[in-house]
């Protein structure tokens, strides 16, 4: 019952605050988990650093002190938390540069690639799902459903390999990898075109790989909504079929899709690892793939923390978007 002017805004504020607190707790968990993973499970980080190499015992002992590994777990944990908040994740074994600098320099490439693909796959997948559901059991539905399922069922990097061989190696329409032509001095529009030329295939790969999930979720969500009485009411009012679909059915069916989109944004950041490796796309994914070969543990640790933080952040965003879109969300 409506008692004050806008009771829902207060309820929503409380809801969002609650979600923020939850996210903070999750972040703490990830920090602890990360510590356990890298300091305790991996019982001898220095030993694994020099795995297979002949290093004097004295040097190892020095390093142990330098890394603070002789201290108690509590002291180590406290130091770790402090360093994490100072964005100090140590030095990469491979590049000998601070991990954070390495990560920061790789972020723009990944955000561009993943951002474009995430938006495109969400848009195309949702539209496909809407068409499939609204025309259920017609040839359109069958084509969209089976097509997206096939893309959904293949390893994304394998799709990338096929596209790369087909369009870059055989046809030569696109470069085989990287973000710009080697040694290019292009600027302005030419540089932009060069970038687009390079991002096309990896972005296509990720878009195709991810749109299946959106199409399937949108389809089943819309099918759920299609049985609702308010659609019969909308039809009875004399609305066109398209208007019934776009104004009444889709806004309700999209609520779960919005959540999925936001959550996926968090996950695709890390999901592009293998695809970036295939296209030598110099982003976080390729950095991860390279770090595995070491293994460059400080780098892996930093990336893992960043990926986790991204997921937590986008989950929170998903909750906020939901609260904003669905008037029924009220703190409860």
């Amino acid at each position: 019952m409506l008692t004050t002017e806008q009771p829902e805004s207060r309820g929503r504020t409380r809801f969002i605050l609650k979600k923020m607190l939850g996210s903070l707790l999750t972040l703490v968990f990830v920090l602890v988990f990360n510590f356990v993973l890298f300091r305790i499970v991996q019982s001898d980080p220095i030993g694994s650093l020099f795995r297979g190499r002949n290093v004097p015992a004295a040097k190892i002992a020095d390093l142990r002190t330098a890394f603070g590994l002789d201290e108690s777990l509590w002291v180590q944990f406290w130091a770790y938390v402090r360093q994490t908040f100072q964005l100090n994740f140590g030095i990469s074994y491979q590049s000998r540069q601070p991990v954070w600098n390495e990560i920061v320099s790789a972020i723009p490439a990944t955000v561009a690639l993943v951002g474009i693909s995430a938006v495109l796959s969400a848009l195309i997948g949702t539209v496909g799902g809407v068409i499939a559901a609204w025309r259920r059991n017609t040839w359109k539905d069958h084509a969209i459903t089976s097509g997206t399922m096939v893309f959904y069922s293949m390893p994304d990097f394998w799709l990338g390999m096929i596209l790369l061989v087909g369009f870059a190696v055989v046809l030569g329409w696109f470069p085989v990898g990287g973000m710009t032509d080697a040694g290019t001095s292009a600027t302005g529009v030419a540089l932009l075109l060069d970038r687009i030329h390079h991002i096309f295939l990896p972005a296509l790969t990720l878009t195709l790989a991810y749109l299946g999930e959106y199409a399937l979720v949108t389809r089943s969500s819309l099918l759920d909504v299609m049985g609702e009485d308010y659609l019969t009411v909308a039809r009875a009012k004399g609305l066109r079929d398209v208007v019934v679909r776009n104004k009444h059915a889709v806004p309700n069916a999209l609520l779960p899709v919005v959540t999925l989109t936001a959550i996926n944004f968090g996950f695709v950041l890390s999901g592009a690892i293998a695809v970036e490796a295939v296209f030598s796309w110099p982003g976080l994914g390729k950095a991860t793939a390279d770090a595995i070969r070491g293994p460059d543990l400080p780098m892996l640790q930093g990336l893992f923390l960043l990926f986790s933080a991204a997921v937590i952040f986008f989950n929170l965003l998903a909750d906020i978007a939901y609260a904003w879109l669905d008037p029924r969300v009220e703190g409860a």
Partner: peptide, 20 residues
């Protein structure tokens, strides 16, 4: 369970596999 749902699955698998 919720915490594990939030941890990005592939990076965690990568980290674990690298360590183990």
């Amino acid at each position: 369970t919720e915490w594990f749902l939030v941890i990005p699955f592939l990076p965690l698998a990568i980290v674990l596999a690298s360590i183990l």
